[in-house]
Amino acid sequence: MWQCPKCGREFDNTNQDHSCGEPSKTIDAYIAAQSEEVRPLLNQVRDTLREALPYAEERISWRMPTYWYKQNIIHFAAFKKHIGLYPGEKAIEHFSERFTEYKSSKGAVQFPYSKPLPLPLIAEIAKWCFDTGNHH
């Protein structure tokens, strides 16, 4: 186990990437706590998800901005070098051919800050998760 010297949280991995301190209570607070360079990108993702999921409620879940309608639909989060999108395993499988230029894992895809955000793809993923019931 590794313990962060700043916040005291314990992790399995040494130097685990995480946010220190109390988790944000709102998406506004989450975005405001990020760096000046990252905030506009997070707002672009937020605006895209708001438009794609007009009936979803915004909330913080798992310390991430989340869109919820009867259950979690999709999450996103800021990291050191990328924005992570968490639509769940089935969405990652369904859209895998569209992620060739991005790093993806079982339930997430990483959009690096060095590339333009694929906002139409993010909207399509969110709508697919909502329409198919394959929520995260």
Results as ranks from 00 to 15, higher is better:
residue 71 Q to N: 08
residue 75 H to L: 13
residue 4 C to L: 00
residue 90 K to G: 07
residue 81 K to W: 02
residue 66 T to P: 06
residue 58 E to H: 01
residue 100 T to A: 14
residue 44 Q to Y: 02
residue 98 R to C: 09
residue 52 A to R: 01
residue 80 K to F: 07
residue 39 R to L: 03
residue 104 S to I: 01
residue 44 Q to D: 12
residue 41 L to E: 11
residue 83 I to R: 13
residue 100 T to R: 12
residue 87 P to V: 14
residue 27 I to A: 03
residue 48 T to E: 06
residue 98 R to Y: 09
residue 33 A to L: 12
residue 33 A to G: 11
residue 88 G to K: 11
residue 77 A to L: 02
residue 22 E to A: 14
residue 84 G to M: 11
residue 34 Q to S: 11
residue 40 P to N: 10
residue 45 V to E: 10
residue 40 P to A: 11
residue 88 G to C: 12
residue 37 E to S: 15
residue 44 Q to S: 10
residue 22 E to I: 09
residue 35 S to I: 04
residue 107 G to F: 09
residue 44 Q to L: 11
residue 77 A to M: 08
residue 15 N to G: 01
residue 90 K to Y: 04
residue 21 G to Y: 11
residue 33 A to N: 11
residue 89 E to Y: 03
residue 19 S to H: 13
residue 20 C to R: 04
residue 8 G to F: 13
residue 88 G to A: 12
residue 89 E to S: 14
residue 51 E to M: 03
residue 89 E to Q: 15
residue 81 K to T: 14
residue 50 R to I: 06
residue 88 G to R: 13
residue 54 P to H: 14
residue 100 T to L: 12
residue 16 Q to M: 06
residue 7 C to Y: 03
residue 97 E to M: 11
residue 11 F to M: 08
residue 53 L to R: 01
residue 18 H to M: 10
residue 78 A to K: 08
residue 64 M to K: 10
residue 97 E to R: 02
residue 57 E to V: 14
residue 82 H to I: 07
residue 78 A to C: 13
residue 100 T to N: 15
residue 90 K to F: 05
residue 30 Y to M: 04
residue 40 P to K: 07
residue 82 H to C: 02
residue 82 H to V: 07
residue 76 F to Q: 02
residue 76 F to P: 00
residue 59 R to Q: 06
residue 34 Q to M: 11
residue 46 R to Y: 01
residue 6 K to M: 00
residue 85 L to T: 07
residue 95 F to K: 10
residue 42 L to P: 09
residue 31 I to T: 12
residue 68 W to Y: 15
residue 41 L to A: 10
residue 77 A to R: 03
residue 20 C to H: 08
residue 57 E to H: 07
residue 38 V to W: 02
residue 31 I to A: 05
residue 46 R to W: 05
residue 81 K to S: 15
residue 69 Y to M: 10
residue 75 H to I: 03
residue 69 Y to C: 03
residue 25 K to D: 04
residue 2 W to I: 02
residue 71 Q to E: 12
residue 31 I to E: 08
residue 93 E to Q: 15
residue 62 W to Y: 15
residue 8 G to M: 08
residue 102 Y to C: 12
residue 52 A to G: 02
residue 97 E to W: 02
residue 33 A to P: 02
residue 91 A to H: 08
residue 26 T to H: 08
residue 93 E to L: 07
residue 19 S to V: 12
residue 43 N to M: 14
residue 97 E to A: 09
residue 73 I to S: 01
residue 30 Y to V: 08
